[in-house]
Design a binder for these strands. Sequence first.
RNA 1: GGGGCUGUAGCUCAGUUGGUUAGCGUGCCGGUCUGUCACACCGGAGGUCGCGGGUUCGAGUCCCGUCAGCCCCGCCA
Length: 578
Amino acid sequence: MDEEAVGRTVRLAGWVHRRRDLGGVVFLHLRDRTGLVQLAFNPDWTPGPVVEQLGDLNPEDVIAVGGRVEMRPADAVNPDMETGRVEVRVEAMERVSEAAPLPILVAIPPDEELPSEELRLRHRVLDLRRPEMQRNFRIRHLAANSARRALADDGFLEIETPFLTRRTPEGARDYLVPSRIHPGEFYALPQSPQLYKQLLMVAGFDRYFQIARCLRDEDLRADRQPEFTQIDVEMAFVDEDDVFAAAERMLARVLSEAVGIDLGGPVPRMTHADALEHYGTDKPDLRIPWRLEDFTDALSGLGFGIIDGVRDAGGRVRGFRVPGGAAISRSRLDSASATAQANGAKGALWLKRSETGWSGPPARFLEGEPGDRLAAAHGIEPGDLALMVAGPDSETSPSLDALRRTIAADEGAVEEGLRWTWITDFPLFEADPDTGMAVASHHPFTMPDVTEPERLLSDPFSVGSRAYDLVLNGTELCSGSIRCHRPDLQRAILKVLGMGEDEIESRFGFLLESFRYGVPPHGGFAMGFDRLVAMLVGTTSIREVIAFPKTTAARGLLEGAPSPLAADELIELGLSLR
RNA sequence: GGGGCUGUAGCUCAGUUGGUUAGCGUGCCGGUCUGUCACACCGGAGGUCGCGGGUUCGAGUCCCGUCAGCCCCGCCA
């Protein structure tokens, strides 16, 4: 609908977005998925009955009109509107459907806040009509299409896997489906197609992908929904370089075709150990220029009891320099200390350097040479702040990660743009903090970086893995690994995780059995599609890119899910409630 | 499971140390207006202050509980 249509007689249908009744002449914005266009009603070209009917029109009525596309008068052009140079001079109109008064507005004035998310979800069909939401889902569609085409062009085959699956108690809680035919037995909805895609590799499908729904019965967040979508990819006869290249080819195409962004060359890599050392987290936000440093040498042995005590206990003083941060107020530093405590540390230490000297808790130990040494070793200039946490790395890392992110956000130190990185060389196992038991740091089907099963059993925590994550701006977007295709290593891994022979057989026997008949080395990844799209449209809540999301209490407000079952329905399923 | 924020008209919000009749904007209804685009102007209707209990002469305001939404921790291989 633009200049090229001028002079044409058209028939348009859509929703009444907004109406401006000037008495003799009436303007109306008609809206559909493609946008807005102005309808002009004027007694000079609009029949009387149509003009009369206009008075009854409500916002969100569905109407169909016939008329002629014309240029607007020069002084009535709206440069803010895509179709603002033209209008449709209406000669006929039909009111197709009448809209009741709206619980929430679709045409929200520019200075008005959005309705509460509760109301937006309850009246989702109205919320989704807003042009912003229409744009989100157009981008989601483009991204899915690009990913599918990119993978297909790369030789991947799209194959579907079951929704009704066997429960695998590792990992997240499963959503369960009672079997009517087998009372007392349950299907599990898949947390991911992990095992099936490995079976497809054994089945000879070389390169598989699926845009797959995954379901996990865990507590929710802005970036976590009970059902979410992954671009699930697996390939045989590959190493990490092959997987990264495939992921990057797909990503480059999605970014370029959906939103016109350039991925910008190969994604850099960082080891898990380096990420923890320099950023305190395995998903660093590289838009923040500050890196963690070890201040232990510069600050210990000066008589500051806290620091010397931590050092003697094997801990370190780590922190980061905030250029110009000396201007940060005492109260904000106090709240920084609270942030550190909320993340497991005893508190945060701070030091400000001015032209005349140091201030902050350790300042009195820094008179003269020690202060100069500190400044030189860590590049601390007058006007800078150093924010530090003392303790074991297990406490300082999460605290410093939180501090680095909150202070950077406060100070406007988060740079624009997209900063991607692969995180590699994860440990195979982590110790459960409560029980000390080994748990898989990625998942139990990851290839260890050792070849002897004995090494796994004797010293599991020293074993590395061939797992990797793709991190964007501090968000884990994608995760994967080269899989363990050796039955002996796989059994050893499951043993380390605390399973006996019988349990291994009953839960994963089908996988290990398949490995007996010729299994190709394989690996892959799963990319969080909702998070990717959220990033593409510029939001952090994946509810903005899911048409009908659940609330944080896992309810569907629109349809009213979940809902109770009647007694006879329970009986048919062989269930009774406590 | 834990912590925090929010809940007042259809919607977005204000509401002072507890005090008389709870307000602005928008939407809705009625009216005027022939080039608007958040049209403008005039008039009107609209309230279980989330719900329950308590303190008080008196509670939107204070206390306890509860429900809902959101954010975070735990959890999410």
